[in-house]
Design a binder for these strands. Sequence first.
DNA 1: GATGAATGAGCCTTCATTCAT
DNA 2: GATGAATGAAGGCTCATTCAT
Lengths: 208, 208, 208, 208
Amino acid sequence: MTAPKEITRDRILEAAEAVFAEKGYHEALVDEVADATSLSKGGIYFHFPSKEHLFFAVLDRLADRLIAKVERESANRPAALEKADAALVAVFSALSKRRRLAKLLMVSGYSMGNAFERKRADLFGRFAGVIKSHLDEAVERGEIGPVDTAVAAHIWLGAINELLIRWLYTGAPAPSAALPLLRTVLIDGLKSAGMARTREERGNGRGR
Amino acid sequence: MTAPKEITRDRILEAAEAVFAEKGYHEALVDEVADATSLSKGGIYFHFPSKEHLFFAVLDRLADRLIAKVERESANRPAALEKADAALVAVFSALSKRRRLAKLLMVSGYSMGNAFERKRADLFGRFAGVIKSHLDEAVERGEIGPVDTAVAAHIWLGAINELLIRWLYTGAPAPSAALPLLRTVLIDGLKSAGMARTREERGNGRGR
Amino acid sequence: MTAPKEITRDRILEAAEAVFAEKGYHEALVDEVADATSLSKGGIYFHFPSKEHLFFAVLDRLADRLIAKVERESANRPAALEKADAALVAVFSALSKRRRLAKLLMVSGYSMGNAFERKRADLFGRFAGVIKSHLDEAVERGEIGPVDTAVAAHIWLGAINELLIRWLYTGAPAPSAALPLLRTVLIDGLKSAGMARTREERGNGRGR
Amino acid sequence: MTAPKEITRDRILEAAEAVFAEKGYHEALVDEVADATSLSKGGIYFHFPSKEHLFFAVLDRLADRLIAKVERESANRPAALEKADAALVAVFSALSKRRRLAKLLMVSGYSMGNAFERKRADLFGRFAGVIKSHLDEAVERGEIGPVDTAVAAHIWLGAINELLIRWLYTGAPAPSAALPLLRTVLIDGLKSAGMARTREERGNGRGR
DNA sequence: GATGAATGAGCCTTCATTCAT
DNA sequence: GATGAATGAAGGCTCATTCAT
């Protein structure tokens, strides 16, 4: 009675998410989305101007939700590096709990003409941004040495991404089994890198 | 014994590589490959049974070359971890020198129905295998502690992958600029993880 | 008795005229007419049963106005041939002053399935009728010899039509520049034809 | 054995001409053309890039033939005005013998977005050109006085056009019945106009 | 081995029309 | 009277694949 507007639009998005996740962009038919919505094809086109727009809308919605969740989860940690760590864990866990979502986000964005690649870059950029902001804070607070946090964020993201894809297509290793090593490598590696940097900066003359 | 047979096949593969790299699997037309070969469409189908087969052949050829190169480059290092490091550097450098190749390998395999996803998994599995073998050796030799080298290899691969993709679509950071941090994080992170593991294993009772 | 009813209907007609004139029947969308009316699509369908009916209504309205104007203008001429001439001038001038109107009337009626062709025939028939009636009078009064006034009327109409279309699409020659020649050819030609006819009729035996 | 290349293309053109003539551009389906060719839809698209291109090709072909015929027929007349007259008769007769052709040429070009209108203008421009060239010659030779032959040509064309359309849609009057009047009006009218012009030019002061 | 005309299944998109509110 | 979301029947165009020559 209060507000449920745009219900239809959301229903479409929901159905489209499922269809796209299952079949990928190209294999998915607008007809299938329509069927899954018990709407006619024309009905879909009333709400979205094209299949591509629909796909992007699905992706954005997913990314929004994931980022919100990640930020919620990493909010109340004392140390910045812990926040970053929490973000890492949150992304990893969230995606490992929803194969579909993971598949869409990790995989579907690729390889469909440049518009899609750009979109994939956007999406990953947003995720990286979240991690980066925590890492920046960690650097500022001296929790880790000065490193290129943008690169670091993408290293993290790439590692997460690959592990999840691997899991999606081979079923192993279980995310929960891989997570500890992932965390150690990325965090300790980063600390170490920070120290190395710091040493370098201090020791012009002695160092390497 | 000498005669370069299969020349035509190779010419097709070459042309196909360029076309697929530029436009991705779906956007690339068999006609375009034909044009780039000064062969007719029919001619292509004499050598490859389908567009998909052609695409896979291109991918395999690329992967073969890359792996050969990587193994060559990491062969004569004394320490196993150094070999792994060399492999990392080799992959990263090779791909960063040939955008097209990188694009194809990193990106094109995704999202085109399950056959493609399987292929992508294969390819990355092969790359990971190379790294893993070195890491296994490093563990055996005690250069690093006992870790799940398969997971580690994928962490490495994922990080490399993401950094390269990032570079491909945004042009920054330059691979050469990102490489040092990448190496430090991955290698030091791995060392650290190995130690933690070792500690754990030794010290049941005391540890954590 | 006073109250302007059917305002909405007229607003639609007005808007539709503009839209149809600009884009032609097929290119024009009912949505566009709706937008131009600040009415919804459904609103239009309350007043007109179909796009086709709407189009025809627009055409009829235009024809009514034009014919009324032409008749007004040719009313108070003494000679019948002058009336015809005045009609010619009136049509030509009226249309050359409103490109849109001309475009719709001259062009839009064509080629859209037989219903449309029939309509076009109707419309031109009405115009021809006006001219014909004047010519008939001229024949009766002996201003010109006995000719097939229906054919003559269509000759006139066709010439007018073509000149205007030409002007619409090429911008030249300006109607005012073409009008004198048009009048001379059509009127003198008709006079001459009438005389020839007359001669023929009289002279059975000598003539041809 | 010698030359019949492009047979298929011609077969398509032939079939398309029939289909377009019968149903008009919009009502005609590419499928129908395909059926009429016993070719698949794809086959059509191998030879023509779009429905529109196909339509234009049909129109051009028709115009080419008609113009060739007209020029042939008006070639060996002594007087230039006779040539023009012969052209008039030839166009009129040719079209009145083939309803389809007439319908396509006279009518189909209209009203389908500006591309079509431009085409119609082209086509009629070409026809007018033929007539105009004869009229120009007639003026040069002094057969008629100096008039705007371009306008005159369009007057002729418009009259022909309208008479034929009228006949196409109402079945009357038969072209052969209308032709004499048409010729007299147009030719005598033009002579008269030429004289009027000439008089004007000579007689500044006395005239009018 | 190679050609290229032809196939044909398929898909996205359009848009006049309807109807519950 | 009016709205606008929804329908559904088309239709143009694509393109991997085939095959007679």
